[in-house]
């Protein structure tokens, strides 16, 4: 059974909104009982992806949702933009690929920091990145 516990949407149109997305991720992670390391990973991934939404996607929105699946609280975040999209996803996910000032670790790095990562994109189709993570059992603190 899946129960949606809470959902929150942040519009991303400025740098300040990246901070808001980080805060949304942090609050959700605390509520879900994530350990400090788990919180930090999720918030860092959210920061990378929100920056992509702003810089590459020209802005968009980020929704954060807590669901309970079989007794585990799962956080799902969806980053949506209607920008130019990504022509070569494999290349964009590869470390060292950057079209702008970053270290080229944004997309691939974010993927490593979460349990599940999915991307839907293509030229002129915009980009939707969905990530989800759950707290490990018995490590609540």
């Amino acid at each position: 059974m899946t129960t949606t516990a809470a959902s929150r949407v942040v519009q991303v149109s400025s740098e300040m909104d990246i901070v808001r997305v980080r805060q949304a991720a942090r609050e959700a992670a605390v509520e879900a009982g994530f350990s400090l390391v788990e919180q930090t990973k999720l918030v860092t991934a959210a920061s990378e992806l929100a920056r992509n939404t702003l810089v590459h996607g020209g802005g968009g929105q980020v929704s954060t949702e807590l669901t309970v699946q079989q007794g585990r609280t799962v956080i799902r975040m969806v980053f949506t933009d209607s920008g130019p999209g990504i022509a070569d996803v494999d290349q964009a996910l590869a470390d060292g690929f950057s079209t702008r000032g970053g270290m080229g670790l944004g997309l691939g790095g974010a993927k490593r920091l979460v349990d599940h990562f999915a991307i839907e994109t293509g030229p002129d189709r915009g980009t939707v990145v969905t990530i989800s993570s759950a707290a490990r059992r018995g490590r609540r603190r």
């Binding site: 390391v37 930090t40 860092t44």
Partner: peptide, 14 residues
């Protein structure tokens, strides 16, 4: 640097 930040940075590839 906080330990959680260090762990995350390494996993991020940094």
């Amino acid at each position: 640097m906080r330990p959680a930040v260090a762990i995350t940075l390494v996993e991020l590839g940094l």
